[in-house]
């Protein structure tokens, strides 16, 4: 059995009185490529944001390789939803990717040649090097998503959390992104992805978590990605659509 990369205990999050996540226990082993699936409003993004300390849970704790997240921050990278920022912000693609180095730089210190070099490498990896000086509003949706991915790659983390990286991207970009994710897994990194397209789960991922406010199931795709769990999560019979 692999080491446990992320461990979540009794996590409960609520907006007002309505629980969004209810008593989540979760163990994510090192080196898996995991999808979090569930219907809209199931708390998928909320789960990631609570693990990363962006949202404050009512109860529960999170540990990264056995220590609290705050101590292990440098091991974790985050790819937010593309729609969460204003892409008309006056900056360039390279500049956004450089932001990935800010964490290791700490306060006040500016990025230098070394940081620029790793940002360029990350841009190269996602195939965006020719666009490095583009203003970010002039990039297509798929290109913006790749820029976000590059920014996380620069962090050179062990665990990657991605919030719907395939949202609104075309087939070419989707393949490019999934190949990068698979490469990360090969390097024994742990990748956790909020995912919407159930059809591609068996093809892309080796681990899956079903979530609908409560955790329905978590485990290897080949063992638990079945009609039973899908029905429990989505509330309707998925038999037909998946077996097609």
């Amino acid at each position: 059995m692999n080491k446990i990369a992320v461990k979540v205990d009794d996590l409960t999050v609520a907006y007002n009185y309505k629980p969004v996540l209810w008593d989540i226990d979760l163990e994510i082993p090192e080196g898996v490529l995991m999808a979090i699936v569930g219907p809209n409003g199931a708390g998928k993004s909320t789960l990631i944001k609570s693990i990363l300390g962006i949202l404050k849970p009512i109860a529960g704790s999170v540990s990264i390789y056995g220590k609290s997240y705050k101590k292990q921050r440098s091991l974790v990278a985050y790819v937010p939803q593309k729609g969460s920022v204003d892409w008309d912000f006056p900056t360039t693609a390279l500049d956004v990717v450089m932001m990935g180095t800010y964490g290791s730089l700490g306060w006040i210190k500016r990025p230098g040649i070394k940081e620029k070099k790793s940002a360029l490498e990350a841009l190269e990896k996602v195939g965006m090097l020719p666009f490095k000086n583009r203003q970010i509003s002039q990039l297509s949706g798929g290109q913006q998503q790749r820029i976000f991915l590059a920014r996380a790659l620069v962090q050179n983390a062990s665990i990657y959390f991605m919030d719907e990286p395939f949202q609104g991207v075309d087939a070419t970009t989707e393949i490019a992104i999934i190949n990068i994710l698979k490469e990360l897994r090969k390097a024994n990194k742990t990748v956790i992805v909020v995912h919407h397209d159930l059809q591609t789960v068996p093809e892309y991922f080796d681990w899956v978590t079903f979530l609908n406010v409560k955790k329905i199931a978590t485990g290897p795709v080949k063992d638990i990605f079945n009609d039973d769990n899908l029905t429990k999560t989505y509330g309707i019979n998925y038999k037909v659509s998946i077996q097609e």
Binding site: R73, Y78, T91
Partner: peptide, 12 residues
Amino acid sequence: LFDADYTKTLGF
């Protein structure tokens, strides 16, 4: 200014 949530995850 660009991405407050992400800034938080970097430890700022």
